[in-house]
Design a protein around this nucleic acid. Sequence first.
DNA 1: TATATAATTTAGAAGGAACTAAATTATATA
DNA 2: TATATAATTTAGTTCCTTCTAAATTATATA
Lengths: 230, 230
Amino acid sequence: MTPNGTSMEISQTVEDYLKAIFEESNPPTLASTTAIAERMGVTLASVTSMLKKLAAKTPALVDYRKHHGAKLTPEGTLLALKIIRRHRLLELFLHDVLAFEWDEVHEEADRLEHVISDAFVQRIAIALDDPDWDPHGHPIPSVDLEMPQENTIQLYDLKSGENGVVRWVSDRDPSLLRHLTELGIALGTRLEVRSFSSLDENHTVRLLETGEEVVLGAGITRQIGIQKLD
Amino acid sequence: MTPNGTSMEISQTVEDYLKAIFEESNPPTLASTTAIAERMGVTLASVTSMLKKLAAKTPALVDYRKHHGAKLTPEGTLLALKIIRRHRLLELFLHDVLAFEWDEVHEEADRLEHVISDAFVQRIAIALDDPDWDPHGHPIPSVDLEMPQENTIQLYDLKSGENGVVRWVSDRDPSLLRHLTELGIALGTRLEVRSFSSLDENHTVRLLETGEEVVLGAGITRQIGIQKLD
DNA sequence: TATATAATTTAGAAGGAACTAAATTATATA
DNA sequence: TATATAATTTAGTTCCTTCTAAATTATATA
């Protein structure tokens, strides 16, 4: 019996697809074939055939609309959350216990998440004292797969004059993470938007800890999550 | 470029075969198709076809003699040692850092060994202070893949009246490990052979720490490694 | 040496997941 | 509405690793 109460076999590949669909389908929208293919680094054709397989399983793991994309069913969502919990716990473990840098943990966790046992997950969760956030500030689903709530917006949407604290950073691109470290931006960093240019979508931002000003393009400001300060 | 200086791709399956062949080919003998198949839990036919593939690679990873078995080439041996290093470091890490029992570590390490990065290996090696022995007392190949030397015999071969210290225990069967724990036998346990019955191949052994006497069959005494005490 | 048994190999097929190329459908623009 | 472009799907292969069943070779015994 697998964790979703069925006796279905879930391959590593399927786990990766579920995760990709989860991350790509912001609730209202369906995840498009293209988006999934890009995220997974496979062909459009491969995605189509996998979506058909996932939709054909009993129970179905995705709800697939030909030519329009797919979203997870409740069963698929639980499976996805289970993998995301593993991934994020692993990231934190690698970071806190094995001294990996925050730009290194994602790739390693991506491989480990498919092979560790439930006992391993449980043990690192205990060692880390049942944490809520991973090294990039993303929420870690609890044992019963509830997501800690966050209240953040993209730095991109923070208006001129507004203050905020960095709460999360996308972990997709290690070089972005290294770049932010160099700029002095980390989780918890407080900042104020000094100006925004709609011409090039650049934000000029002042880091409150150091007083330094930096100019950040949309390619960066959309990858940073901010909690607004009054 | 892979660690053996070639640009060969090594699949997880191939890694498992190399490990199995290494463990099954005590230097003089070839590993037989049957032995490999049993160890891997696959069909004889599967082994034959894989041996042919491994022998056909450039460089060849095994030296294969039709109808007689196979042994690793120097290239195959290096790859096998690399995996065995990972496996044993992982076992020790799971045991010492994550509090896994000695009967649990083998299975987990078997899955993890194929996916961890070299950086991961390096970090746990450092965290464990470059150890020589895994939780079952097996030698851990060094960074340059040298095996620490051991000087042990099977408990089976310890004669009546002789003393010894338990130096290793086979990790193939978790239930054996649990059984030994219950009997009070662990690495470092000192003991004396009181008698051996050639009728049923039972050894009667006295544990020097507690004075207790236990009777152990060949199924157990062949799985225990002893360093003789004069 | 003949024969029985055990071990091994060959041949052919299957399942997963990927790919390319061609065909189709959806969307945007004139 | 017609057409161009973009997105998606279909069809057919390929690669890897496994399997079963049949054929062959090696080893042990009479």
